[in-house]
């Protein structure tokens, strides 16, 4: 093979790598753009399935209708409330469990018992039905607490935080103790300030998890007015999907339903994703460190 051929084939190789990467990027992006385009198109265009990645007969009517939808905003409010309650509870429990567990066995008698207790909770669970019955017997059905309390201790995050605390230099703690600091002060004044990246990681795990969860709402809320946002959206789309799956095409579907509200549903989906898109830069930054630093111990 002469030199020219070699550089030509290298160029083709390089170009195909770029093409594949761009292709994968587009394949991921276009379906997401599709739903945004649908949310800004007229019902007629959506019904005729004429919408690709650009809105057809551009309109903001679906968003105007959305503003007047009381259940959407009630569910939105429930989800926001739930995210803050879960976040507060999760962070307190994560930090106060992770700190003692990050001590050596010689420093904290009973550590291994607690540790095994925690790990077993991660490996094995009672499953859907017994958990549902516990929540029901506690009288939590149809309350916001049914969405918050069952996931109060995210075991995975506790272990992640514990591993991080273990990496904190001992000298810092010893210096504080010589100055007369109590464990609580050591935790709050020495450990927490230098743990901000890890705290951010587990906080984001908590936020994304509770915002996206629709299942708790589905089983613990019996009234639609109590649904968190994802459960509410899920309840809207499921009937239409079943009709589509049974082979009804969209034109017949809208005749069946009177008027197409697919653009309205799309608008709901877009608005429900906005909070996550807003924190996405943070997610990209901290999730990646969280994953690469890893929960896996050497």
């Amino acid at each position: 093979m002469n030199l020219q051929n070699k550089s030509l084939s290298a160029k083709i190789g390089k170009a195909s790598i770029y093409l594949i990467i761009i292709f994968l990027g587009l394949v991921t992006l276009l379906p997401l753009l599709n739903i945004v385009a649908i949310s800004m198109s007229s019902s007629g265009a959506v019904t005729a399935n004429a919408v690709g990645i650009v809105p057809v007969n551009f309109t903001l009517e679906p968003y105007r209708m959305l503003i007047d939808d009381p259940q959407f905003w009630r569910s939105f409010g429930i989800s926001v409330q739930r995210v803050f309650l879960s976040l507060a509870l999760n962070m307190i429990l994560i930090v106060f469990m992770a700190y003692p567990l990050s001590k050596r066995k010689s420093e904290f008698k009973g550590r291994s018992i607690y540790m095994n207790f925690l790990i077993f909770a991660m490996l094995f669970n009672g499953g859907m039905i017994p958990t549902y019955l516990v929540v029901r017997n506690l009288g939590l059905l149809n309350t916001i607490w049914s969405l918050v309390l069952p996931s109060a201790v995210p075991v995975f995050s506790v272990i992640l935080m514990m591993n991080f605390f273990r990496g904190v230099p001992k000298a810092l703690e010893e210096a504080a103790i010589i100055d007369g600091a109590k464990p609580m002060q050591v935790l709050l004044k020495v450990y927490l300030p230098i743990s901000v990246p890890s705290l951010a990681t587990v906080a984001l795990f908590s936020i994304v998890g509770s915002w996206n969860d629709f299942f708790s709402g589905l089983i613990y809320m019996t009234r639609e007015s109590n649904y968190p946002l994802m459960t509410y959206i899920q309840s809207l789309t499921v009937d239409i999907q079943q009709m589509i799956q049974q082979g009804v095409n969209s034109t017949n579907l809208s005749e069946l339903m009177g008027v197409s509200n697919r653009n309205l549903n799309a608008a709901k989906i877009v608005v429900s994703s906005i909070p996550l898109i807003l924190i996405y830069p943070l997610l990209q930054k901290y999730f990646i460190t969280g994953i690469v630093v890893g929960s896996v111990k050497e």
Binding site: F108, Y114, G126, I129, T131, L133, V134, L149, P183
Partner: peptide
């Protein structure tokens, strides 16, 4: 340390271990 870890343990007992008993 025991006091710090206690609240988390209580939550695990109620929402993880009670269902196992179930």
């Amino acid at each position: 340390y025991h006091f710090m870890i206690l609240p988390g343990i209580i939550f695990l007992l109620i929402f993880n271990y009670a269902p196992m008993f179930g």
